[in-house]
């Protein structure tokens, strides 16, 4: 305990020491720091400065009066959100969709990357990879349209189920199928693209390990389980932590496109609500307040999942 504290003191030093050291660093590696500059400027201008806009969450913001001229209302909008039980529905819908996303979508690119990794023909693998990236570049509007054509009342899948089951399933207009359709579309669209990072991690695996394992009589499954997976474990954990940061993000465009009166009970998530309040009804303050709460929860989740990763002996995010 005491050694740790001492270490921390040593690491951070006093404020003065820190700046002094930084100054020396910059002097020594000035060209490297120059490379950092554009990125730094980008973050300051496009990520940090706009953050001052958060104050509108505490105001009754009217565009004409401006951020500085609008009336200060404190936590009114936060209280408003919790005033009626509807927020429970929005939160539950968000969490269920996110959880399903983590359980069913998250492993998909890993599995696909592992499958690709096992391919023998390199040329075939490359071709396949390229083809798998294509859906990512298709607009979600198109994806939803395709789904409507296939699963809608006059679609082939709809008709097929009618023939096979004897009764149709209303894929596009039922609260029971809604989430599965969303997950299905996400998997179809993003799995291929998601493999990139895992494939990159897989290239780092030492091929000698495979050869050694083969000599020891390990079959493909053994090699996968004992070499490949452990090698990309830290990447998987890293991606999972990052994913935790967006547990409350469901996006709104995809959901709004798929929503209709029959499935609205399950399609109303926090993001959809923020969009409706902020952009459609012009309730900028109210929408910002909800967005701010979401952001706070997300940061907490990232920090705590990172902690858990450390406790489990993983490297984590930082």
């Amino acid at each position: 305990m005491s050694t740790k504290a001492a270490e921390r003191r040593k690491l951070h030093g006093t404020g003065k020491m820190y700046w002094h050291k930084l100054g020396a660093d910059i002097k020594r590696d000035k060209w490297l720091y120059l490379l950092l500059l554009p990125g730094l400027v980008y973050f300051i201008i496009f990520k940090y400065l706009p953050m001052f806009g958060i104050v509108i969450a505490f105001e009754n913001y009217v565009p004409y009066s401006g951020v500085l001229g609008s009336q200060w209302v404190g936590f009114k909008w936060f209280e408003y959100f919790f005033k009626f039980p509807s927020w429970v529905t929005y939160l539950t819908n968000t969490l269920i969709l996110s959880l399903m996303n983590i359980i069913f979508y998250f492993p998909a690119p890993i599995i696909l990357a592992l499958l690709l990794n096992e391919m023998r023909s390199l040329r075939y693998k490359k071709l396949l990879q390229t083809l798998l990236y294509v859906p990512h570049f298709i607009s979600i509007v198109i994806v939803v349209s395709i789904t409507f054509v296939m699963f809608g009342p006059s679609g082939i899948v709809y008709k097929l189920t009618e023939v096979v089951l004897g009764h149709p399933i209303n894929y596009m207009g039922s609260p029971d199928t809604f989430r599965w359709m969303i997950i299905g579309q996400t998997i179809w669209k993003e799995t291929g693209w998601g493999t990139i990072i895992f494939l990159a991690a897989l290239t780092n695996v030492d091929t000698q390990l495979y050869e050694a394992a083969m000599v020891d009589g390990a079959n493909r499954l053994h090699r996968l389980w004992h070499i490949t997976l452990p090698a990309i474990r830290s990447t998987i954990v890293l991606m999972l932590i990052l994913r935790m940061g967006s547990v409350l993000d469901t996006g709104y465009d995809h959901l709004i496109l798929m929503a209709n009166p029959l499935n609205r009970k399950v399609s109303q998530t926090l993001d959809v609500f923020v969009y409706q309040q902020g952009i459609q009804s012009g309730q900028f303050s109210y929408a910002s307040a909800i967005g701010l709460m979401k952001a706070i929860v997300s940061v907490t989740l990232v920090v705590s999942s990172n902690k858990i990763a450390h406790l489990l002996g993983e490297q984590g995010l930082y």
Binding site: P261, L262, R264, Q268, F273, Q283
Partner: peptide, 21 residues
């Protein structure tokens, strides 16, 4: 109504649609 009206209207109209169907 200003803060929640849109969602509340939706509850009524969605229920009506579901009842009709």
């Amino acid at each position: 109504y200003t803060a929640f009206g849109a969602q509340l209207d939706q509850i009524i109209s969605d229920a009506a649609v579901q009842y009709i169907a």
